[in-house]
């Protein structure tokens, strides 16, 4: 029950809207900045309204290599997409299989495998970055998509979530399937995967964001601009130096770097919220 206090309601809406506006401010400024020429930008404070150069700025960064990089934004976006999809798909695929083995089979060393996998939850890649770099270098994975993707798959978050979900699948379903003549692979394909659909979608959203937004690892492993990702490129083009920072290019690239993950989260919000809240448990 809530007290009906219209004044308080309006105050709540007012505060919320104020915060929404404040949250949008950086993006608004990025939008307006990306539509001016560099000269127009540097005439005073950043403009609050749009200029007329939006289209040409975006076409410019997308088609030609930028001044401070050896790659165009189109190339950067492609690299980010490959990495994000690779991480999301790879992580989900190996996690589905590993969690399946751990929940639905009994075999020697099962508990050991369980702990070997789940201990990885405790250490993010940032803490083991140097030796991981060395391993990647030894395996000849520097400046390659495989090198961008594989080390970031080596964590058990998704495995853990699938395990939690599998444990809630009624045991009688497995029994019925066995009586109906389904072996392990058939049960996985015909029963378990169709039942996991929303979980897979939720994890896909989270893992895609995780992959797209990676910073430290791609920064280390890509020395060739051909494999540079969008997020990592921003530092290079926005770093203060003797020349003026080309803010219109920086902001156009920044917006491009935000667009795919924000689009994913807005379109798939339902799955995302479910995935987040599930991962708490």
């Amino acid at each position: 029950m809530r007290y009906r206090r219209p004044a308080l309601d309006w105050l709540s809406h007012g505060l919320l809207l104020l915060c929404v506006v404040a949250f949008c401010l950086p993006v608004w400024m990025a939008l307006t900045a990306s539509t001016h020429t560099q000269t127009a930008l540097y005439t005073g404070t950043a403009p609050l309204w749009f200029g007329g150069e939006g289209l040409s700025n975006f076409i410019g960064v997308l088609t030609a290599p930028m001044d401070r990089l050896g790659a165009s934004a189109a190339r950067l976006l492609w690299n980010s997409t490959v990495m994000a999809l690779g991480i999301a798909v790879g992580k989900i695929a190996i996690s589905i299989l590993a969690a399946y083995a751990i929940v639905f089979f009994r075999f020697p060393l099962r508990r050991t495998c369980f702990w070997l996998i789940f201990i990885t939850l405790m250490l993010p890649i940032e803490v083991r970055i140097m030796p991981t770099y060395k391993v990647a270098a030894d395996l000849n994975l520097l400046n390659s998509y495989i090198g961008l993707i594989l080390p970031l798959i080596a964590s058990a978050t998704a495995t853990f979530l699938f395990r939690q979900f599998y444990l809630t699948v009624p045991n009688e379903l497995l029994e019925a399937a066995r009586v109906d003549g389904a072996g392990p692979w058939r049960f996985l394909r015909d029963i378990l995967l169709p039942l996991s659909k929303t979980n897979i979608a939720a994890l896909f959203v989270i893992m895609f964001l995780y992959g797209w937004n990676q910073y430290l690892w791609p920064l280390l492993i890509t020395t060739d601009d051909h494999y540079l990702t969008t997020v990592v490129s921003l530092k290079r083009i926005s770093a203060a130096s003797d020349e003026l920072i080309p803010w219109q290019e920086v902001m156009a690239t920044t917006l491009l770097a935000m667009l795919p993950p924000v689009a994913v989260i807005v379109v798939l919000q339902r799955f995302f919220v479910k995935g987040l809240v599930d991962s708490e448990k």
Binding site: P170, E172, L173, E175, A176, A177, R178, V179, D180, G181, A182, D190, I191, P194, L195
Partner: peptide, 21 residues
């Protein structure tokens, strides 16, 4: 023999129907 090879059929307490089929 595996359940399927015994040529038996079972009706479960909670029915165990495949919810997506």
């Amino acid at each position: 023999l595996e359940p399927a090879a015994r040529d038996i059929a079972m009706v479960f307490q909670n029915y165990a129907l495949y919810p997506h089929m």
